[in-house]
Design a protein around this nucleic acid. Structure first.
Lengths: 223, 223
DNA sequence: GCCGCATGTCGTCAGTTGACGACATTTTTA
DNA sequence: TAAAAATGTCGTCAACTGACGACATGCGGC
């Protein structure tokens, strides 16, 4: 964001000598760029400059355009990896193991989700994209989230021997009670720079406890 | 890159025929600019161009600099009005009226909060600012929110004849269970463009019901 | 009427920024 | 080992963008 005074001094004009600007195979360089770009756009937003990104990669700006036709294409790939990637894991399986208590299942899942998905990098990229109307793959995420939300509501209702709501939209919204509270915890900590005084493990347990205990009230309230 | 706000301004102010915008008194023009700017920066982010904003106002870009020394100063004032403004209202009072049921108090409050504060404009401005590390007045908001969170936890605990947690940080975090769930509902609807199939009134009631019913579990869970 | 000033615009400067042609250097291959 | 291919940089263009000096214009007071 500040002066790019980091601009290399009298770089080795033709002599190899000291500077080891080693040449990387195409795939490897591409990988490095994508990794740096995820970090970079997450930090400075989608309007971050390609020159700055190149500097962060330690390469010339021109080289970026040897790998991606334009900035948007690079960002699309960053998005696909960093946002969609973490969702690939199907940890959903454990959620339906009724040999384990519902509280433990939910706590374990969200402990994992918080650490693997709701990171600073992920949240910033996601929010920048959403604010820019970046409809990048919201459907994909929506599909996975819908399944998750239905699962946690179904399982929690089963615990109480309750019949889940018939309206699928409303049913998922009940799941958002827990999912939203934990997502917002991550947003507060990573985006709003709220205090980290209470360890998140303790809070996830509390949110899960409230969700499970509050489920009957949410459903009965509908009478 | 392309049309960020490329919308040619429509007719001036009706009257005055073909001639350009009528001349406004300084205070009035300033007001108009601030109103438009809130809308504008909320929509296009803090990197929105002053030329586009001027066009939206129907004035020349130069004129903006007759009212504000620079872009940042204008944004700071927009922020103070649009973000801080809605917090001024002290609807907190009703929350402690124990003649009314806790569910009704919380529902009424959050119904109001959702409609008056958690609007699309407010959320977008707030998020853009937070992502840009805009430490603009987070303290002021924090102070009000802290009071709010403590109040709703105190009142809900009172309902259950429970002693609120001694640790003030943890106590506030419990309040975030409800506040976060509702904030995230607004974020989903206004920022993520999630579905609006279920009316928010119904969801606020559900979240409140879960919060109130789940409070004992959150506290006992600490054993 | 016409003076003076607040209101408002035009044009431009200097720094930015995405994109890319031309060229240089290293590695692979026949 | 020389040519081809791959890897990489320099320099530049055109559009963008915040900022502002110079100038124009409507309006109230006398």
């Amino acid at each position: 964001m500040q002066a790019r005074s980091a601009k290399l001094k009298k770089a080795p004009k033709h002599k190899k000598s000291t500077k080891t600007n080693l040449r990387l195979p195409r795939a490897e360089r591409r990988e490095q760029i994508l990794t740096q770009a995820a970090e970079f756009f997450s930090e400075y937003g989608l309007t971050g400059q390609t020159r700055e990104l190149a500097a962060a990669c330690g390469i010339s700006q021109r080289l970026l355009y040897r790998f991606f036709p334009n900035k948007a294409a690079l960002q699309a790939e960053v998005y696909a990896r960093t946002i969609l990637g973490p969702f690939e894991g199907a940890w959903l399986g454990n959620l339906t193991d009724r040999n384990v208590s519902i509280n433990e299942r939910l706590t374990t899942f969200y402990e994992n989700y918080y650490n693997k998905v709701l990171t600073r990098k992920w949240l910033r990229l996601f929010l920048y994209s959403a604010l820019a109307e970046g409809d990048m793959a919201p459907n994909y995420i929506a599909a996975i989230l819908m399944k998750l939300l239905e699962t946690i509501v179904d399982e929690t209702c089963f615990e109480h021997s309750l019949r889940p709501p018939d309206d699928p939209d409303f049913k998922r919204e009940l799941g958002w009670n827990l999912h939203g509270a934990i997502s917002h915890l991550a947003i507060r900590r990573h985006i709003y720079h709220g205090p980290h005084t209470v360890p998140h493990e303790r809070l996830i347990k509390a949110h899960v406890a409230s969700f499970v205990a509050g489920m009957p009230a949410m459903i009965e309230n509908e009478a």
